[in-house]
């Protein structure tokens, strides 16, 4: 990708970012409850009408929509996402504290996923329509059909309740605490990704150059690991970037199940307590993280593939 394309990509990203911010802002602007009342409720207080009216004026909630939006956006750009109603701390502080545990969890499940899905996907593609392919396909089929929160519960049942090998509550965020949440997240993703690896490798295996290499006498393992596999990584990197989305969504469910101290868990708590600024912050952060990851993936993809790099 040339500089020009990167720039146009960045420009596109800016438009989408603005859109994201508008949607995020609308989320709470359009919400049925009155934020001031909710703020008091979150603190366990019953406000009188006068207090509410005064507070509304102070917070600028009576200003026109655009004024409110730009004030909010300006604050966000200065790193001020407001204060959590329920927890009384700045949203930035709260999210920052939970960011690393969530990323750590996402990363670990991704590594697990790659360890499982790449060998299975390659195996399944190389032995297409052989028994091993059917077995892998059956496994992935069940893998994509099983809800991850149920997987999490079953894992707890087996490893924590029955075998007593691991802690039920992963609130410490240590490695041992992360094992089950990471496995839970990895199950569904591995199934999906195994299919994608299989498809990508199959597509490469059917390329002309494979026949060319065979005609030159090149050994099958060299064709597979020296050519087919590296080439199929190119589309797989893109899919990996996109799967970060479902990964980030999945973390919230899994974090709740295991009481893991991550952003998703925090967000779910925030929603139950109508903690709007915290919800806004969470949605905005995750969307931006997701977007940046995919931008990096796109750029790296274009760098890795010489066809992208060198063609006019």
């Amino acid at each position: 990708m040339g500089k020009k394309q990167i720039l146009s990509r960045l420009a596109q990203m800016l438009i989408v970012l603005i859109g994201i911010s508008v949607i995020t802002f609308l989320l709470t602007y359009l919400s049925p409850g009155d934020p001031v009342r909710n703020m008091y409720l979150a603190q366990g207080l019953m406000p009188d009408e006068e207090q509410v009216a005064q507070q509304r004026e102070e917070m600028g909630l009576n200003d026109p929509f655009l004024t409110q939006y730009f004030r909010w956006l300006g604050n966000c750009l200065h790193g001020n996402f407001g204060n959590s109603f329920a927890l009384g701390k700045p949203v930035v502080t709260l999210l920052l504290a939970r960011l690393w545990p969530t990323l750590k969890l996402a990363l670990m499940s991704m590594v697990l996923m790659l360890l499982v899905s790449v060998p299975l996907g390659v195996l399944s593609a190389v032995y297409q329509d052989k028994p091993i392919d059917y077995i892998v396909r059956a496994i992935t089929f069940f893998g994509v059909s099983i809800p991850n929160f149920w997987v999490g519960l079953l894992l707890i049942l087996v490893f924590c309740v029955q075998l007593r090998l691991l802690p039920v509550v992963s609130s410490g965020g240590t490695f041992k605490d992360m094992i089950l949440p990471a496995v839970t997240l990895a199950v569904a993703m591995s199934a999906k990704y195994t299919r994608q690896v299989r498809t990508a490798v199959l597509e490469e295996l059917h390329s002309d150059y494979v026949i060319g290499a065979r005609a030159r006498g090149v050994a099958e393992w060299k064709i597979l690991w020296g050519n087919v596999f590296p080439n199929s990584l190119l589309p797989l990197i893109t899919m990996l970037g996109l799967s970060v989305g479902s990964l980030l969504g999945g973390t919230s469910v899994v974090e709740v199940i295991f009481s893991y101290p991550g952003m998703g868990n925090l967000a779910v708590q925030a929603i139950t307590s109508y903690d709007y600024y915290l919800i806004q912050g969470y949605v905005l952060w995750v969307a931006v993280i997701y977007m940046v990851i995919n931008l990096l993936v796109d750029i790296s993809y274009n760098y890795v593939d010489p066809r992208m790099r060198l063609r006019r």
């Binding site: 150059y209 026949i211 060319g212 290499a213 030159r216 050519n227 080439n231 010489p306 066809r307």
Partner: peptide, 17 residues
């Protein structure tokens, strides 16, 4: 040309061969 890996230098494919 299409029978060579498009993402590798011709020299690399030649060396492999």
């Amino acid at each position: 040309g299409a029978m060579m890996n498009q993402t590798r230098l011709i020299g690399k494919s030649f060396v492999e061969y």
